[in-house]
Design a protein around this nucleic acid. Structure first.
Lengths: 193, 193
DNA sequence: TACGATTTTAAACGTTCGTTCAAACTCGTG
DNA sequence: CACGAGTTTGAACGAACGTTTAAAATCGTA
């Protein structure tokens, strides 16, 4: 286990501050100065760690999607029935979004990225989407899920989960555990026949 | 039936152009000039119809929410069972978003509004949320829906539907009819026991 | 046609923002 | 202590943007 260089830590701090700012105001609404000030650094200093603002947004997406795909790989490695597998993914996804990414997931407007960077993000997201869809299709094929269009169902599920960041209140009554359970019950339970 | 003044028509055209721009680039990412150019008018001219950019965003939200609440009132006036009523609302909601508002609904970042305007938007949105939740609660009480937290279920439903604007492609294979049916099947059908 | 109200224009403004850069500072190591 | 690489600063820039404004154009109507 080699220690990662100090700049990596700093880069991650910047990403967290940037993600928070982007979440609050959107990519164009958040200023570079705002991201830097939250870390008590000057905005010029950010450019020692990142080439420009767009690269920061890109890194945010890479970070989130990376975690998501690791999650997917882990769950795929387990031998579970489609419904158990889907439930585990929903729970883990909700927890990842709320506890780790603090509401940030696929919500940080990717359209703000220039085409070449956007393409790379979409490619990763597609891998995740495809994984979910495959599980749904398997569930339908095996008769544990009601018949339906896996693509539409997956879009609905992902929308429901991604939307959480719009209403979640860390100081509110609902914990991420409760939200995860409620969502799994509704989104996966509703699929079972 | 009195004809509405010409300025009203022009205002609506502006709102449509603005909504499209806001949808593409977000409120801060879309420029006033972009909104005006699409209508072949100068940006200065916009200020004859609206006080400022924020008022345009506010009017977009008022317009959308107004339609949503009219919808809700219409459905409430019909005497239907909770499941039929919820299904009708989901279908109408999907159609409203896709056919009429062209993907715009509660997605146009409301957080960009200043507190006083935001408050008015939230108040309207709450009325709609409450209406949906009431139907879900009635369904649970009457035993046609599985037990669950109406608030979480409503958040999940609204998230799924609002998210449609992120992936919908007007030139794609899915029509708004098909999407509506698929969503109603999954979101309402999954609730029935 | 002529008048007044409505609508549009084009230029200018003040500000904010992303980015650059040369100089200054920090800190571990020889 | 001295050196040099790594890091931070603060000021400056050019461009983009929202908004204002006075003048011009348009249009309905008498």
């Amino acid at each position: 286990m080699s220690r990662q260089p100090a700049t990596t830590d700093r880069r991650i701090e910047i990403l967290k501050s940037a993600a928070a700012a982007f979440r609050r105001r959107g990519y164009h609404g958040a200023s570079v100065d705002e991201i830097a000030s939250a870390l008590e650094m000057t905005k010029g200093n950010l450019y020692y760690y990142f080439k420009n603002k767009e690269e920061i947004l890109f890194a945010c997406h890479e970070y989130s999607l990376g975690k998501l795909l690791v999650l997917m790989d882990e769950v795929e490695a387990e031998s579970l029935s489609p419904d158990a597998r889907l439930r585990r993914l929903v729970l883990a996804f909700v927890h990842l979004i709320l506890d780790d990414l603090h509401g940030t997931a696929l919500t940080l407007d990717p359209e703000a990225l220039s085409p070449p960077l956007l393409k790379r993000i979409i490619a990763k997201r597609d891998r995740f989407d495809h994984g979910i869809r495959t599980i749904i299709q398997q569930g339908i094929d095996q008769g544990v899920f009601k018949p339906g269009d896996p693509k539409m169902i997956e879009f609905a599920m992902m929308g429901a989960i991604n939307w959480i960041s719009k209403w979640f209140d860390p100081n509110g009554a609902m914990t991420s555990d409760q939200i995860g359970d409620a969502f799994a019950d509704y989104l996966v339970g509703g699929l079972q026949q």
